[in-house]
């Protein structure tokens, strides 16, 4: 149907009720649906953005925050190009859970994954429980990028996804160049558009 140059998978995670679905809705449809029900399992949306004239298709997987869906949502981590870990700046418990989420990411996601920490609901300033510096500090500690957003006021939402698209496109371009450089002269060329070079398969494990 539509052609695109790159396809990236973006997965949103975080506690229930922090506004993952609203962020996705705001970005993909420009809506803020009040009274959004809890997500069941995993939802998925697509939006194509343009980066330096290239069409970049973002496949956004919006996961359910509730515990009983954990096994389903975990299965999406590995193939994710970017993870967005969301908490609610007006709700301390959602911030306190972040270390658990980090553990999940370490266990299931690829080591190369681009991770963003997002403090959502920045419009509710009066109810803020986690200062921006604390969130930013936490993000830095775990080498994540940090942004505060408001799905309601459309604050930083486009920026979040655009930054991700730009960064992933940059990475993809670099990866695409690398295997060309160290290809052996005697090798038969592979008609393969895969972006990860063979040289990257250094870690092997099988118990």
């Amino acid at each position: 149907m539509e052609d695109y140059k790159y396809l990236f998978k973006v997965v949103l995670i975080g506690n229930a009720g922090v506004g993952k679905t609203c962020l996705v809705r705001r970005f993909t449809q420009g809506l803020f649906p009040p009274g959004q029900g809890a997500t069941i399992g995993v939802d998925f949306m697509i939006k194509t953005v343009e980066v330096d004239g290239d069409k970049v298709k973002l496949q956004i997987w919006d996961t359910a925050g509730q515990e009983r869906f954990r096994c389903i949502t975990q299965s999406y981590y590995r193939s994710a190009n970017a993870l967005i870990l969301v908490y609610d700046i007006t709700c301390q418990p959602t911030f306190d859970c972040l270390p658990n989420w980090i553990k999940e990411i370490d266990t299931y996601a690829s080591s190369k994954v681009l991770t963003y920490l997002v403090g959502n609901k920045s419009d509710r300033l009066l109810h803020r429980e986690i200062p921006a510096e604390i969130g930013e500090h936490f993000a830095k500690q775990h080498s994540m990028r940090y942004l505060e957003t408001s799905a309601k006021e459309a604050e930083n939402v486009d920026r979040l996804f655009t930054e991700i698209a730009v960064e992933l496109t940059k990475q993809a371009k670099e990866n695409f160049l690398r295997p060309r450089q160290d290809s052996t002269s005697g090798k038969v060329g592979m008609p393969n558009g895969g972006s990860s070079p063979v040289g990257g398969l250094s870690c092997c494990k099988l118990n």
Binding site: I40, G41, V42, F69, C71, I72, S75, Y76, R78, S79, L201, C203, C204, K205, L206
Partner: peptide, 29 residues
């Protein structure tokens, strides 16, 4: 269950790529 099948497809990919492929790869190494 659509979500169930999706999850198992994901898991199958992970297992094939991380475990099975790496096994072959390490033997070829």
């Amino acid at each position: 269950s659509v979500d169930g099948v999706c999850a198992m497809l994901n898991n199958a990919c992970t297992m094939l790529e991380q475990d099975f492929k790496e096994e072959l790869h390490s033997r070829l190494k």
